[in-house]
Amino acid sequence: MNIDDLKNTWNEDDSFEETPDIATEQKGKINLPLEKMRKNMRMEFWSTLGIFIFGFILVWVPVPEAPFKFKFYITILLASMALVTFFFFSKFFRLYKEMGSPMLKTYDSLKDLLHQLNLNKQYYVSFYLSFVPFLVCEMIIVIECLPHRKPLSDLQIATTLIGSVSIGLFMLYLVGNWWFKYFYGKHISKIENLLKELKQ
């Protein structure tokens, strides 16, 4: 068999055909939830940036009761939180770019995007839970650095710290899940339904 016969055999083989393209009408249905998610991601990024800037300003507002040590520790804590946030937002930004890609034309590419969206849900919950150590540090700083009318007993310190961390952990998990479902989950469900329609 010469090279021309090999080329003809390769061209006639239909086992390597591309996945069928998604119809124009269905592309419109897919683009709407994706664009809403991208809009929510932009809003979340800018609001998070604003919260950090406000936090740094608030720490250094002159308050006579707050000693320098307290302000310095809180500033270091906020800077550490900003680094963790930057790490997670770099993951979200990759997904943001992927959602705006013009390459989402086939069923397989859309299925891959849905997998990434579900993977980012885990990142999202991890993002909120990663703030637990910062919550612990913040409570320790508040207990140790701020003046109290009377010294706290060991039991009061332990109760305050354990109670605050337990409530904080529970609230972070609840807020993280609710936020994801409200801003992203309903749009992901629409894409899942469209994928089911395309499969039929």
Rank of each mutant, 00 (worst) to 15 (best):
C145V: 01
S166H: 00
I143C: 05
C145S: 09
T159Y: 09
I157T: 08
I141P: 04
M139N: 12
F170T: 14
L169E: 09
K150I: 10
L152P: 04
I157H: 02
I143D: 03
L172E: 10
I157Q: 02
K150R: 14
I162N: 02
S153P: 00
I141A: 04
S166C: 13
G163V: 10
L152D: 04
R149H: 10
E144N: 15
P147C: 00
T160C: 02
A158P: 00
Y173K: 07
Y173M: 05
T160W: 06
P147H: 01
G163C: 11
L161G: 11
I167H: 04
I167E: 02
L172Q: 07
L152C: 05
M139C: 13
H148W: 11
P147M: 08
T159L: 15
L152R: 13
G163R: 03
A158G: 04
R149L: 14
A158T: 14
I157S: 00
T159V: 15
T160M: 08
D154G: 07
V165D: 06
R149T: 14
I157F: 01
V165T: 10
L172A: 09
Y173G: 04
R149S: 15
K150Q: 11
F170A: 15
I141H: 04
D154N: 14
E144P: 00
R149P: 00
I140P: 01
G163E: 09
S166W: 05
G168D: 07
I167K: 10
I167Y: 06
M171Q: 13
I167F: 13
L172N: 09
I167Q: 00
T160R: 15
